[in-house]
Design a protein around this nucleic acid. Structure first.
Length: 616
DNA sequence: CGGACAAGCTGA
DNA sequence: CAGCTTGTCCGG
């Protein structure tokens, strides 16, 4: 008996998505255990993984404890355990999900030995710059740097400005950018490590262990959970990028996670973007470069008013665009509509092409074939009203636009669309057309043309204006060259839109000025905090939620409810008070859309008809 | 999540 | 009433 009472007892959170509960276990004699360690335990007849979330706890005397089966390796430290608890509250998720992201993808036995001295960085030291100094001397700043600005110099300056012995954590929107930045820092003899983990964890074992004592740790979204025991400063590059938000619930945002993390560690946090989000501007002090510098950092932009069309060229190709693609140099054309044509009309009688089964507008995925997106019915290209086989596209998709563009320029035009992964798969033609993916897949070009920018400006996401400006900033980087900037061409029916004005005048402040009152009037974030609750268990969840003070419950629309509160404190406290009902449930805090996807397919599904089952 | 156990259904 | 399915509960 005395042996048992003297044994150590630890508290374990099992790595089982459906269990959000801690269990106590005995530590076998001589087994070294530390906070955050990854362990294996016997739970209800099966062996599962988990994390040690508390040491030396006083167990409930009414339960007989089992012993830890194994200590697998090191895991997230005490700071990250607490941060995961906070993030689970903030995004109404489970800690296990977040701790998995904060854990190495491979077993790590030890962190290795820390070297105390900081390596002397070689290479040219960045010149001191009053703007960077100002941004780096604040603990909560937002730096607005134009797309053409040198961000590597900023990273170097941030490294030098970080207290000796403390670490700099840098986040990039993509793994590729993080990899490039980490290797460039190492070439310049900065002690840096890139955390390039894929799904499931922040990094493989070796890099994860090294992050404990390198001076600079670079990562993408999951890098927010990098193990940095001596965190002194955080830098988030391209803070506006949507890649920082996790798509699956919990929909945590790396920017918000590191901002909270920095606060807890008394570290400085600097968000950087050519077009800072309203969320960022709400959080910290804005620092801008002098007007002239910002102006030089944006390329020349030609805006084409599509309301005045040349009928001979059709809706997508203005004379200015034709000049651009027939000129010299590499040109990328962006059209965010996949497929060939999304809507067609008869060339003879002008009747809209509809589905004979369900009446929805049909598209033309390939020549000669009409397809209904809603119910999957196909038919040959024929007008049901007059029998004509000549239909014309009302809304061209990328594939059809490529054919027309090729005819206009008289040379092959490549196409980039869909979620192709490897950058090497990009076509090497001089002119390339594609969805937004072209801007990610192709590294450099002389010009970028947006064929239908209203598609971006007027999208259904409430942040679409900010995202549209972000896309112009990305295009601006793609056309950045040694001899200055290339050209951007934007075709739109709303040439006075604040997004266009911001880019033309190189002043994203215009968009902020127009967007803030709009969000206030409509009660949209960041003026409010929102969540969307959906899937089978949503009705039970909403019933259990009731009517908490300060939380507005709207819906259901398509089986989803929208919750709105004045702030996250109110919203998240209310969500945390609800016991999770059994069944499939999605709680999306800070949703990208204020209502979930309202595609035709979505409607059909909610009406009890699943087109994917009807047409396998 | 997934095993345990209880309550409900079926067939001879 | 055995043998099986379906549902609810709970884990140290």
């Amino acid at each position: 008996m005395s042996v048992v009472s003297e044994s150590r007892v630890v508290r374990v959170l099992p790595d089982v998505p459906a269990i959000d509960k801690e269990f106590d276990y005995l530590v076998p004699d001589g087994m070294p255990v530390e906070l955050g360690d990854v362990v294996r335990v016997d739970l209800h007849g099966r062996r599962v993984g988990g994390w040690v979330v508390a040491l030396d706890v006083e167990p409930d005397p009414s339960v007989t404890l089992r012993a830890l089966a194994k200590v697998s390796g090191r895991g997230p430290g005490a700071d990250l355990l607490e941060l995961a608890g906070w993030a689970a509250w903030r995004w109404a998720g489970r800690r296990a999900q977040l701790l998995r992201t904060a854990s190495p993808t491979a077993v790590v036995q030890s962190f290795g030995r820390a070297s105390i001295e900081r390596a002397d960085p070689g290479g040219p030291h960045p010149p001191t710059d009053p703007v960077l100094d100002r941004a780096l001397s604040s603990d909560r700043a937002v730096l607005r740097l134009p797309p053409g600005a040198d961000r590597y110099g900023l990273v170097r300056a941030a490294h030098l400005a970080t207290d000796a012995g403390r670490q700099l954590l840098v986040l990039c929107p993509s793994v590729g950018e993080a990899r490039d930045l980490a290797s460039r820092l190492r070439r310049d003899r900065v002690r840096a490590v890139g955390l390039l983990g894929d799904v499931g964890g922040v990094a493989g074992g070796q890099a994860w262990a090294r992050a404990h004592h390198e001076d600079v740790v670079v990562g993408a979204r999951a890098g927010a959970w990098a193990p940095c025991p001596r965190l002194g400063r955080v830098l988030v590059l391209d803070e506006h990028d949507e890649g920082y938000q996790q798509e699956q619930a919990p929909t945590w945002h790396a920017r918000d996670v590191v901002a909270e993390r920095a606060r807890r560690a008394a570290a400085a946090c600097l968000l950087v973007s050519p077009c800072p989000t309203l969320e960022a501007l709400d959080w910290g002090t804005l620092v801008t470069v002098p007007r002239g510098g910002e102006r030089r950092g944006w390329p020349a932009i030609t805006v084409v008013d599509q309301r005045r069309l040349d009928p001979a060229l059709g809706p997508l190709f203005s004379p200015a665009l034709v000049d651009l693609v027939r000129g010299e140099g590499r040109v990328l054309c962006v059209l965010n509509r996949t497929g060939r044509a999304r809507m067609l009309a008869c060339a003879v009688c002008a009747t809209l092409a509809r589905c004979e089964q369900c009446d929805a507008a049909v598209g033309q995925p390939e020549p000669g074939l009409l397809l209904c997106d809603r119910c999957g019915t196909e038919r040959p290209t024929i007008c049901l009203a007059c029998g004509s086989t000549t239909l014309k596209s009302l809304r061209l998709g990328v594939s059809r636009a490529r054919e027309e563009l090729e005819a206009l320029v008289g040379e092959p035009v490549g196409e980039v669309s869909g979620p192709g992964v490897d950058a090497g798969s990009a076509p090497d033609t001089r002119v390339v057309i594609g969805t937004e993916a072209v801007l990610h897949r192709i590294r450099g070009a002389d010009a970028v043309a947006f064929l239908d920018f209203d598609q971006e400006l007027l999208a259904t996401r409430y942040r679409s204006a900010e995202q549209a400006l972000g896309m112009l900033a990305r295009a601006a980087r793609v056309v950045r060259r040694r001899d200055g900037m290339g050209r951007l061409l934007v075709q739109t029916r709303t040439p006075d839109h604040p997004v266009i004005r911001s880019a033309l005048q190189a002043d994203p402040g215009h968009l902020v000025t127009s967007e803030v009152p709009l969000r206030q009037v409509l009660g949209l974030p960041p003026t409010t905090a929102m969540a969307v609750v959906s899937h089978a268990a949503a009705p039970d969840f909403i019933e259990a939620l009731g009517q908490p003070l300060g939380v507005e419950v709207q819906g259901p629309v398509d089986g989803a409810w929208r919750l709105r509160a004045p702030d996250h404190e109110t919203l998240c406290d209310a969500l945390a008070a609800v016991p999770r009902p059994p069944g499939r449930l999605r709680v999306e805090v800070d949703p990208l859309r204020i209502w979930p996807g309202r595609s035709l397919v979505g409607h059909a599904v909610s009406a009890g008809f699943d087109p994917r089952k009807a047409h396998p």
